[in-house]
Design a protein around this nucleic acid. Sequence first.
RNA 1: UCCCGGGUAGUUCAGUUGGUAGAACACCAGACUUUGAAUCUGGUUGUCGUAGGUUCGAGUCCUGCCCCGGGAGCCA
Length: 564
Amino acid sequence: MSSDETAETESTDFIREKVRTDNESGTFGGRVQTRFPPEPNGFLHIGHAKSIFLNFGLAKENGGTCFLRFDDTNPETEDVAFVNAIQEDLAWLGAKADGPPKFTSDYFEQLYVWAEVLIEKGLAYVDDQDAETISEQRGGFGQPGVESPFRNRSSEENLGLFRQMRDGAFDDGSRVLRAKIDMQADNMWLRDPVMYRIRNVAHHRTDDAWVLYPTYDWAHGQSDAIEGVTHSVCTLEFADHRPLYDWFLSHLDLPSDQPQQTEFARLNITHTVLSKRVLRTLVEQGHVDGWDDARMPTIRGLRRRGYPATAIESFVERIGVAKINSVVEVELLESFVRTELNRSSQRRMAVVKPLKLTITNWPEGHVVMVDAVNNPEDPDAGSRSVPFSGELWIEEDDFRLDPPPKYYRLTPGREVRLRAAFFVTATDAVLDDDGNVIEVLATYDPATEGGSSPDGRKVKSTMHWVSAPHAVDATVHLYDRLFSAEHPGASVEGAERDPLDDLNPMSRETTAAKLEPALGDVTRGEVVQFERLGYFAADLDDPTIFHRTVGLRDEWANIQKRKK
RNA sequence: UCCCGGGUAGUUCAGUUGGUAGAACACCAGACUUUGAAUCUGGUUGUCGUAGGUUCGAGUCCUGCCCCGGGAGCCA
């Protein structure tokens, strides 16, 4: 995107507005630093893209910096494989972090030192109770909490115990370090939250150096402060943690200004699900081929599907950021994909559901090369030669024995144009025993070569085609929504429902397609427009497989839909 | 039950110190067209959650109420 284009479409929102006023008032000395902090326990999806472009965008727009930080405080669920996958996805999206990636685990030592500071100040204590007891004592919404019997241990005793915890003297779950705040707080996160737990588990980076692991709450704000983050942006469910985030920071000597947390609403999209848990179930139960299945809303899935990273970025910018929980229509995402692909993709002809068309007056064995434009949106894209013969494949939908009203395509007695080639008139159809059309017979007008008639005669329709003897075979996946319901799993009349019940059993239809020869040598991942059908991406691993990225807008489909 | 966020077209969002509601997508119509695409032109849709109050004037300020979302992990 050019800079003046950005200026024109410059959108604002409450977060950008806050950054602006902070800059004006000199809150952080005009500094803007953000971070994208994924936990390496899964793959990135389009919901993360919203956070990614927000964080990187904030930094970029203000001449600031944005780090990538892996929030790796829970060794039980994390893995290097995810660290690598996340970096690949980020690179593909075009989000470039400043400097090498950071890891919360790099700060374990500093975090530990700070924990001792809080203990010395009497603001943290070791609790010997088990998880269940602590949870019960926390109380409930509007219900009082109960103070732990270990809450008033001396600093010396706490320090001794805490050091033993670090040294591995205790079993998993036997003791935790808790912040000493207020067991009667209205905000449950202030009722002496846990800062450290014991886990005798190898960590993917620190291996067995630690058995003591900080919780998210203890690690996050402090990591922000260590890195010099100014604006710590996260999703709405952390809003209740903000007082805790501030509390920790306010009791420490920080190397920089105290960072501030701001929350925004996470992304939801119709006909899909962006919950790691549900996505994992889809993969594990085999409803999709994997995390990178072209129907998945993961970055890898969208990539295989052919969604351009730039379209994802434009989409995310368009939907803006707010605090209201919302569900964006997939159609909006698709429209950005179409807009991008319309200007960038080469046009080709491919027949996805082939029907034989024989030209009865075509000279036996004759072949003509016709010239077809590569991209009408881009004059520099030039043209290509496509072989035309008397045996062709046309789209099943492009012929009707009994045409419905407003049907412009081929039907007995009607003349249509075969794109860039000739006018043809259907004369007859061959049926099988069940009455299905298996072949269409037609005649052509030799004077219409190139696709126009010297007498100025007009036709209602132009159709795509592929010469049968020259056709390249391919497997094409036609996708429909993964979930047929607009809001998968939405409760009906108060009853909880499983999103999986809304899965669309027809989300993928696979066909044996016939392609024009030029399609035989597309590169992996290349997206082309199959004229009149949509945009199709050559598979990343096997370029004889094509995925329908998204169909074209389809007025004819709308007409049919309206009639129903 | 308590705390925190929210409520503006079908959807996502704008609405500046109060001046009588906009954009994008979607939808509809027309023009153009060798993609029923793209492009261009025009158009439809709102009890601004609700009821009061302040004011010459309220989507904007005040109060009550209603509805939706989040929160009681040693997950993040």
